[in-house]
Structure formats: C-alpha cells, structure tokens
Amino acid sequence: MIEFSAVTKRYPGGYEALKSVNLTIADGDLLFITGHSGAGKSTLLKLLPVIERATSGSVIVNGQNVSAMRPAAIPYLRRNIGQIFQDQKLLYDRSVFDNVMLPLSVTGVPFKDGAKRARAALDKVGLLTREKANPIALSGGEQQRLAIARAIVNRPSIIIADEPTSNLDADYAAEIIDLFVAFHQVGVTLVIATHDESAVSRAAARATVRSVQLRSGELVA
C-alpha cells in the first residue's frame, strides 16, 4: 500500500512541483499518472524510492514514511521498488547480461544464483538471445525492455516507470504495455507516469487500470 498525504514538493528556488497531493494506491493496482510534461509526474514517482524527499506531507510505502527515512535505510527500500527511468540509465560499458546483474551484484547475491535470476528476467522480456550484446547495439524498444528486465530482477512488489513508451514506435510501445499488464496479473503494484493516452487505453483494454491526472502539481482526477 502506498499513501501520499498532503504531499508538497518545493524545489530550491521556490518552484512547487507538487501541491498538497493526496493519493492512495492499493497493492496490486495498475495506476497511470497522466498529465503534460512539467505537471509533476516524475517528481511524484521520485518520492517513492526517495530520489527526492517531500518538502511537507508524508509518503507511506508499506507502512513506512519514506520521506523521513534515514539515508542508511534507503537502499533496502529501493531493492523492493523496480524502477524504470525516463532516461533508462543503462550502463554502456558492459553487456546486456551485466546490466541486469547490477541490482543483484550490489546486494551481494552470489554470482551463480544471480546469473539464473538475470537470465530469467531477460527471458521474460525476450532478450535472452542478446545477453552478450552491448546495450548500444539494441533498438530503442529492446533497450526499454532491458531496463524493465533490470527493474524486475530483484522481484520487487512495486514497479514504477517514468514515460516508458515515449520515443518508441507504436509496436514497441504496445509490447512494453503488454509486459506491464503481465506483471499486474501476477500481483505487482505498478505506478506508470505517461502522457501517452494510447498506452493507457491499450492497458485498459486488457486489465482493470486506474488513472489519475496531474495538472501543474495538483491532482485533478
């Protein structure tokens, strides 16, 4: 369960990205946050793994107020949240396989166990045959699927994705949405920020989705 209560985020300089947002997300929800760029979608997502801290209000994730979380506890929170970043943040100095291994190797999973899980994640997104390739050699859609494989390799109970279908062809975007629907069907909580209406409607055609809209930092629906 995720609960935003009167959450305000003010950046240095006074810009208010979020204005007193209240939002409850139940376990297993497939939630789309829509809105124009600059509406505060990315900021809202960044509050969950504490990449940013709320200026006021509380962000409760599984019973913990993560806005007030001490720095030493944050890594353990992040291991339970699969993150798909707008700029993907893939590492181009290593193979597809090593990119997926990264969340495991930084948490001390022995290589053998980790390799098994990494290959399972790559298999799920259809990249098992490309594990030795460098991410730079992948298409845009494949890179996005690689980012998803890395996000799910720790088997998180929550997945957040920031504009996962932007810059993708309609076919690739559809593949990505279908993957998210598949995760939703096995009980994962998904929070997806997007301005792509067709993505939302494709998901809605296959599963029960929730959708909220942000406008200038305020929740309107």
Binding site: P49, P75, R78, R79, K89, L91, L102
Partner: peptide
C-alpha cells in the same frame, strides 16, 4: 560516476 549513481538507485548501500 554513472555506475555509482545507477548502483545507488538500484539499492547499493554506501558501504558497497
């Protein structure tokens, strides 16, 4: 820098 930043986002502790 990039590897460190991504590792931290993916749940690496400062010790790691």
């Amino acid at each position: 820098r990039e590897e460190i930043a991504v590792s931290k986002l993916l749940g690496a502790t400062n010790g790691t």
